[in-house]
């Protein structure tokens, strides 16, 4: 008796896991940081063979563009080219600390996984990341807290110099104009070239020099850095 119930439920679970179910979802992203912005956010649903990023592996050129300069077009092209469905830039620009971006309805089609990325600004190559979160088939409201990752493509020198193109050292700019200038740069020779959890920025309290152009009282964070709420209709 008991055993048959178990086997039936296992069978049911198995069936659900292989079937792809179209769902309508809405996604909101809240910036939990004290004083960092998120660049335009990419919300992507995709199949199990696709990923926007993969911890422990090297960033793709498309991911590097996003993490160093906030450019999500190449990632979007890659996802949609593989049958994924996306929402680009739900905040219609930068998402400031304490603010929430609410997406429009997204029809996931055949895609069971949700991924989200956006650059954390001002940083060298930090990004918020949700990697292949399985979209529940049951309607409801789901909350996920996500971390800041380091793309591993650029040294975290913390120098604001307009550098945002892949391979160009430096931070593009500080959106709230609260960065410093003339920093010597934070240099420690670390060479983790794979995507990893971001160690956080150092910053200093000297806007006219010092090691960093970031402000330790404004730009630091602890993970998690974003709250994601997914509403499955």
């Amino acid at each position: 008796m008991k055993r048959s119930i178990i086997s039936i439920s296992l069978l049911a679970a198995g069936l659900f896991s292989v079937s792809t179910q179209a769902a309508n979802i809405e996604v909101s992203v809240t910036n939990l940081t004290h004083g960092n912005h998120f660049t335009p956010i990419l919300i992507a649903t995709h199949d199990g063979d696709s990923q926007l990023f993969n911890v422990g592996e090297k960033a793709t050129p498309a991911l590097q563009k996003m993490a160093e300069g906030g450019e999500i077009a190449d990632l979007n092209t890659a996802v949609t080219g593989a049958g994924g469905m996306t929402i680009m830039n739900p905040a219609k620009g930068l998402l400031a600390a304490g603010h929430t971006a609410d997406s429009d309805m997204l029809d996931t089609g055949d895609n069971n996984y949700l991924s989200i990325v956006a650059m954390v600004l001002p940083t060298n190559d930090a990004f918020i990341g949700l990697d292949s979160w399985m979209i529940p088939s049951e309607a409801g409201r789901y909350t996920v807290y996500i971390n800041a990752y380091d793309a591993g493509t650029e040294a975290n020198d913390e120098i604001i110099n307009g550098g945002g193109m892949p391979g160009v050292a430096g931070i593009p700019f500080a959106p709230s104009d609260d960065g410093g200038e003339n920093a010597n740069g934070v240099m420690d020779g670390s060479q983790n070239m794979h995507v990893h959890i971001h160690p956080g920025v150092l910053g200093d309290t000297d806007p006219a020099g010092g090691a960093s152009d970031l402000d330790s009282r404004i730009h630091r964070w602890l993970n998690p850095v974003a709250k994601v709420v997914v509403t499955v209709k």
Partner: peptide, 17 residues
């Protein structure tokens, strides 16, 4: 800044504050 947010952590006197 007058809104609730994730705590950025404390800096301490040993880390430049």
């Amino acid at each position: 800044i007058n809104f609730v947010h994730g705590h950025p952590g404390v800096i301490s006197q040993y880390d430049g504050l």
